[in-house]
Design a protein around this nucleic acid. Structure first.
Lengths: 353, 353
DNA sequence: TTCAATTCGGAGACCGTTCCACGTTTCTCG
DNA sequence: CGAGAAACGTGGAACGGTCTCCGAATTGAA
């Protein structure tokens, strides 16, 4: 009648050992397929494990060995780009014994720090940090404790591996595309990114740099214009209002993230502007929404799956003992859909020129 | 020089005990704020913990007590509705000591089973299963081992608590809304849902039941029509093509999930049909995409956040010892946006009538 | 045949916590 | 004032694995 008395006791390694008539050391060896087990022994033990439906207790294993668990830290699962990354991670790890557990910390620095520590405390064998927004120093400290791969930030360090998108190049692709269509007043939506401290190579910053370089390259350096708001629907809306309602309205808006582009859509709707007739719109990340029929957003694909798979592979190598750090860069490509076209004709040519 | 020699040893409870000059039992008591500690002792120990920057090792705790970790199992994080649920779970659990870890298993029955077991093996204190797609028997077995809350399925059991949306009612809201606009030929997009075995109350099934009831209630039982495809963009597309290209084209399509509605959008586009001029479209779940400016999909809101928060609360109660099972039902509401309107005029009135 | 090398299996310490049992103080109250 | 109860602190046995020896048995070489 006691509340938990009916919770059956787990089958332990000792049960298996007894059932097979061997020592638990032997069972442990079979489990980890370690050296020093005869085929016959392996056979007996395996049979016993199957018969008792034995599953090793991860926490107990973790006390001396591995937990066979990889932790992924991200801010918000709503970001569809992360889903692509996770798919990559999962495919890479599916066949191994490793399990992937995700922690969604939100954007607050303290919450992310707390989660990172929680993952370490739970004995993760390795950590994948996607665009971490907590102080770099804390990340380095973590990475010194647990094998770690950082996705997104361009800052490299001995302590961890890095997987990044060539964001400067990606921004260049967008500007090239728009200039090719005849645009000159091309504005960018970016974010100050309250990304903890110590990060100098956040994706958004590198993207911004790439944008400015590309504009200069085309001789449009003076027309460059950036609206800084959050990478969110609301942020995109505010940026859109700011840019599109201004006197010198840009003919093209490059939203630094697809979500932000959605907000620009709303701003355009409110201002009675059509896309791409009145202005062109480009996103970034080629999120699933971008491809949806009612959206059809031109965007930049970052091969999230590849990034995730790479991160997973690098992480396993680290777990296995590699110590020198590695930087992997993947190349973005532009996906042309329906939100970009030639700029509208100048309403009334300004005198001169 | 050894690869891992520089990974600093963790501060353990013994270190804290030594540093504070007390026994580790005492430290443990302070940690769990258990009974039998004097304020002075609490003070000393807390100071020592702070000084050494001590963090308890969750895996070790799990061996005898709790791990303070809640596991959430879901199929795919791409489903934005899950994000709402998770937000609810997180807000509810944020202030406690509990951490939420998410496992994304994919749709395959074996993968989900494997993940569920992995979560149990990792000593989760409690489990939240969101629309589990593995056999009910396995879920019940799991629930007998670990406190569990199932979200979505209407099948109740002594072993676990349940949080569901009143899906039949939700479907009724949609039909009422459409009939109110003048529609009669209202089709439903649903899914066979290869949801493991043993589940008789999957959300989609209950929704279907509600749809049929509502149609009958309005005297439209004979006009009811259901296209069975997957709840995905592609599935929605196929259902859309099937329904919209048929002779007796429905004037309204009720997509059983917002994702599917996106596919219907694509089908409509391909067939040259305008929404809502040529036919009305309603989704379900009121996912974030539904609200996006380029979409503006009429949908049914399920209060995912509330569901998540409720699930978390129920789970904690179970962890604390409650044994009788509980069913919580939340009520859906219709969110009217731009994809529904009056039906188009009959092209050429059929003779008679 | 002898002795070293190799292979196999087992004993038992250890990982970092919880928690039970028990001893010592300090209250409470007749 | 004394006895019983409550409060407080400690030692040490778990928990379920891993992993480092160690010894016995087998094999190979001389």
């Amino acid at each position: 009648m006691a509340p938990t008395s009916d919770r059956r006791r787990r089958v332990t390694i000792t049960d298996v050992a007894r059932h097979a008539g061997v020592s638990k050391s032997a069972v442990s060896k079979v489990l980890r397929n370690a050296y020093g087990v005869s085929p016959a022994m392996r056979e007996r033990v395996s049979a016993a494990m199957a018969e008792l439906d034995y599953r090793p207790h991860a926490a107990a294993r973790g006390m001396r060995g591995r937990t066979y668990t990889i932790g992924v830290l991200l801010d918000n699962i709503r970001n569809a780009f992360f889903a692509d990354i996770l798919d990559g991670v999962n495919t890479e790890l599916r066949d191994g014994d490793y399990q992937v557990l995700i922690g969604a910390a939100g954007f607050a620095e303290e919450d992310q720090t707390k989660l990172a520590r929680a993952l370490v405390d739970r004995q993760m064998d390795g950590l994948i940090l996607i665009g971490p927004g907590f102080p770099r120093a804390e990340v380095l400290r973590t990475a010194a404790t647990v094998p770690t791969v950082v996705i997104g930030h361009h800052d490299v360090a001995e302590e961890h591996d890095s997987v990044v998108d060539a964001d400067a190049l990606g921004a260049g692709l967008v500007v090239d595309h728009l200039v090719g269509l005849g645009h000159r007043r091309i504005a960018l939506t970016s974010t100050a990114g309250n990304r903890g401290s110590g990060w100098t190579g956040t994706p958004e910053r590198v993207q911004r740099r790439g944008y400015h370089e590309a504009m200069r390259r085309h001789g449009l350096g003076d027309l460059a214009r950036v609206a800084m708001t959050a990478f969110s629907e609301e942020g995109g809306y505010r940026a859109g209002m700011e840019l599109l309602a201004s006197a010198e309205r840009p003919t093209a808006v490059f939203a630094g993230a697809d979500v932000a582009a959605m907000g620009v859509f709303r701003a355009a709707r409110e201002l009675g502007l059509r896309i791409p007739e009145d202005f062109s719109l480009v996103g970034y990340n080629n999120t699933a929404v971008a491809a949806l029929a009612p959206v059809r957003l031109t965007s930049v694909d970052q091969a999230g799956g590849l990034m995730g798979a790479t991160a997973a592979r690098l992480l396993l190598e680290r777990v296995e003992g590699r110590t020198r750090s590695v930087l992997m860069t993947v190349s973005p490509t532009l996906v042309h859909r329906d939100t970009t076209g030639p700029p509208p004709p100048e309403p009334a040519g300004p005198p001169g020129g």
